[in-house]
C-alpha cells in the first residue's frame, strides 16, 4: 500500500463520511421515525434493513438531498446536506431511465450534467465505456423499452457509477427483479463497489443481499416512531461470493440473527427502547 493513503485511513477513524444526527420525520401528530443516528465511513458499505413503513426510503431520500428531515441534520464530509448533489448518486428502485433516450444517451445525460464542458462525442465515448463495465456494450443504442428488466437496472447502475460519486445510494435496487437476475446484479454491484472503493448506503428487504454486500447492517424497528435498534457488524471475510456465501462459517448465525430481528424483535422493540438504549450509539452486535 502506498504511504500516501495512510493519512486518509486515519480520517476514516476520526470522522465518518456521512453523519446522520438525530433525524426524524413527522406528519402532523404521526412520527414515522425519530432520533435516528448513524454514520457511514469512507469506503464502507452500509445496509439498512427494516419492514415497510419504517421510513427507510425517506431516510435514503434525505441522504440523497431529495427530502429533508423534520428534525436533525445529515452531514456529508462535515457539511450539511441541503439538496441533491452529484457527489451522491442514486440507484432507484425502478430503473428511472427516461424512455425516450437510448441506454447510451441516458448515461451520457448523467455524464453531461457532471462534465458540462465535454463535447458530445466524448460524452458518448464515456457512456459506452460505462455501459461496457456492466456488460452492456452491445445494448448502447437500445431504448429502455427494448431492454429486459435486469438490463435496464444495469443501465441505471452504469449511470450512477459513471459520475464517480463520493457515495452511492441504493433504494432496494433489485427488488423488482427475478432471483437469478438479482443475484447477477448483486455481484456486479459488489464488484464495482470494491473496484472503486465506493462508499455505499443501501436499503433492502433481502437479508442475503445485505449479508453479501455490507460491512455493517442497520436494523430498524417497525414504525411508527421507528429507530435504529442495533447495528450488526458483518465480519464474514471478503470477497464474498453468492454461490459459496452460505457455506461460510458464521453465515447462518448472522442470517438467523437478522431474521429473528425482522420476524419478532422489530415488532417487540418498536416504540419501547430497552433500558440503557442510547439512540446516538445503537448497540453494535458482532456475531
Amino acid at each position: 500500500m502506498p504511504e500516501g493513503s495512510l493519512p486518509k485511513e486515519k480520517t476514516v477513524v476520526t470522522r465518518p463520511y456521512v453523519q446522520v444526527e438525530g433525524i426524524a420525520r413527522r406528519y402532523g401528530p404521526t412520527t414515522v421515525f425519530e432520533n435516528v443516528w448513524f454514520g457511514v465511513n469512507r469506503g464502507e458499505f452500509v445496509c439498512l434493513v427494516g419492514h415497510s413503513g419504517c421510513g427507510k426510503t425517506t431516510i435514503l431520500n434525505i441522504l440523497a438531498g431529495l427530502d429533508a428531515p423534520s428534525e436533525g441534520v445529515v452531514l456529508a464530509d462535515g457539511r450539511e446536506i441541503a439538496g441533491p448533489s452529484l457527489q451522491h448518486a442514486v440507484i432507484f428502485q425502478g430503473h428511472a431511465l427516461v424512455p425516450w433516450m437510448t441506454a447510451e444517451q441516458n448515461v451520457a445525460f448523467a455524464l453531461g450534467s457532471k462534465h458540462r464542458d465535454w463535447p458530445r462525442h466524448r460524452l458518448a465515448e464515456a457512456a459506452r465505456a460505462a455501459l461496457a463495465k456492466v456488460g452492456l456494450e452491445g445494448a448502447a443504442g437500445r431504448k429502455p423499452s427494448e431492454l429486459s428488466g435486469g438490463m435496464k437496472q444495469r443501465v441505471g447502475i452504469a449511470r450512477a457509477f459513471a459520475i464517480t460519486p463520493k457515495m452511492m445510494l441504493m433504494d432496494e435496487p433489485f427488488s423488482a427483479l427475478d432471483a437469478l437476475t438479482r443475484g447477477a446484479l448483486q455481484e456486479e454491484v459488489s464488484r464495482l463497489v470494491t473496484e472503486a472503493g465506493q462508499t455505499a448506503f443501501m436499503i433492502t428487504h433481502d437479508v442475503d443481499e445485505a449479508i453479501l454486500l455490507s460491512d455493517r447492517i442497520l436494523l430498524m424497528t417497525n414504525g411508527p416512531r421507528a429507530r435504529v435498534a442495533e447495528v450488526v457488524v458483518n465480519t464474514l471475510p471478503k470477497p464474498r461470493v453468492r454461490a459459496t456465501l452460505h457455506h461460510q462459517p458464521g453465515y447462518h448465525a448472522l442470517r438467523d440473527h437478522i431474521m429473528d430481528f425482522l420476524i419478532t424483535r422489530s415488532r417487540t422493540l418498536a416504540g419501547a427502547p430497552p433500558d440503557g438504549y442510547d439512540p446516538r450509539r445503537p448497540p453494535e452486535v458482532i456475531i
Binding site: 440523497a64 438531498g65 431529495l66 439538496g83 441533491p84 452529484l86 442514486v90 432507484f92 448523467a110 450534467s113
Partner: peptide
C-alpha cells in the same frame, strides 16, 4: 425522472 435530474444537478 425529476428526481434523477435533481440528483444529477
Amino acid at each position: 425522472w425529476l428526481n434523477v435530474a435533481r440528483t444529477l444537478e
